[in-house]
Design a binder for these strands. Sequence first.
DNA 1: TCTCCTTTGAAGTCG
DNA 2: CGACTTCAAAGGAGA
Length: 605
Amino acid sequence: MGYLRDREKKIIDMILLQTKLGLGAPGSLPFFCNGVGELTQPPPAHMGIPPYHHLDPTKAVHGLSRSPMYPFGSQYPYSVLPEVSQVASWHAQASMYSISNPGNPAASAGFRNYPPSLSIPPTSIPSDFYRFSPGSLLQGPGLPPHPGLAHHLVGTPSKHDAHSSHLDHNHRSSSLSDQKSSSDTHGSKNASDSGQSNNSQNDKKKPHIKKPLNAFMLYMKEMRAKVVAECTLKESAAINQILGRRWHALGREEQAKYYELARRERQLHMQMYPNWSSAQSRTHHEKKRKKKQEKFDGAGNSMKKCRARYGLDQQSQWCKPCRRKKKCIRYLEGDGGDGGGLGSPDDNLGSAGSAGEACTPDSKTGMDSDMDKSSDMGMSSPNFSLTSPGMSLASPGMSLTSPGMSLPSPALTSPCPSGILPSPASLASPAVSLPSLQSPMTPSLDDRHPISSVGSTNSSANFTTTSTSSVTTSSSSSCTSPVLPLPPSLLGLSAPLLSSSSSKNHLSNHSNNHHSHHNHHLGHLFNNNNNGLPLPLPLLPLPKGPLPHRNPVGANPHDINNPLSVNQLTGQCNSSSSLNSNSAKSRSKPSAENGNSTPAVIGVT
DNA sequence: TCTCCTTTGAAGTCG
DNA sequence: CGACTTCAAAGGAGA
């Protein structure tokens, strides 16, 4: 209710603002009408924004031609770079997205308010939401980019810089002189080339053009403050988990807005930095990484990770980072020489939890890695079975037919203001009542899917099995682990559900497009079943063998010892909630730290 | 001061 | 072409 009210308020504010700005064209608001009509379906991620090289700035002005890669391409209008009125409405939208209520400091705190170089008052329009302010478009091609944009985009360490300048840099950069200097520095050309590096200082300050934010990033930016305010959480990791959940629970139209925003951001970014490529950002960071790598190389540590090297029973031998579930300092990437997959950063299934990796013992990683898996999972016995008391899938709480598990679920509306989804299923489940769990684990959205609930049962109960492969991969992975016998159609359905938040790294990314596509199916599923998919999903037979394993999020947030565990971080928000984080940690940081995640399981066994 | 955590999406790289 | 990797934001925490 509150959320809806908030939205209504935002819309009203937006309309008022638009009126104030004389931008009252009905077609420009709300959201992304673009004269095409209301969005009926959200764009899949891969559809939402055409590849960078497909974004022709020259065309962009007139319209973005997008091949309808997705069935509803025609329904989802990707029009164009905003026209002037549109751009203004864009600003207005920004005001809506970025809680602009001045009386809500928490809400506004999360946003950088790019100083309006234009006619739009800064106080009313926190264009912060847009790193690539449409202002530059408004001003025309020859005009400098939005100072805020430049400030943010170029050479601004987002993170630590934020501490000092998060709130005030708006003011700093809002001055005309700053605008001028900013534009002088970065110009409308490629900012990375604009340095006129005559002196070393310029070289040092060679601007780093950051990637444009994707839809989820934009969403996070907007909602973070909200979540922080609601949950009094400050840990970004935990907040991001919440936001991830919320993102999935978000309506398709809501998501569509962010995809649209992201698309526009990219367009603007491309216009401003036509020569930019994400490789620049990559190389920018690779330098640091190389340095670090050399550092480790110099140390001559070509060892296995502590976990694999010493085992769980000799944790005293582990290096500190391993004990802290951080990156093993003894582990050297590329130490593939021995131990089969052990040395590979990718064998850190423990955390990684990726179904792709978590295949059957004989599938991919070999025996060693299998052992590693076991140990990573904190399992002493490979025969660990989910049929153990309290973890039975047939347990009432986890019943696949449980109301809490059926789709669509009322719980999807996220009663918890933080977006954490309490579930009767989890709450009632004996599994979650295990003493090892400090706080009840709540199945994620994914968990509400019967199939995923199987896997999530494991994670939410801190049980892992030797098996491994998540059903997620059933349709695309080479995993041969016992998979729930699903008809292809259902598999196709299940995959997105599962991959939506788990094992993203490996599953989702086995094809970005597929992943995104699936994710959108997920969204469709949860918001409206207009795909004609059967809901609720049928009860699935329990597998006889080891159940598919879904490793918990990242460094095992369920590990109560993990300071960043979901429980610890979000418990204060909602004691009955938890993020069943099927993490995607594994996605981007596949290596070392992943293997260190673990062992909440130990306590169970 | 730097890195990690954690999320999703976009884009680059590699085999 | 698929799989994999990195980066974008955020801010607390730890080294």
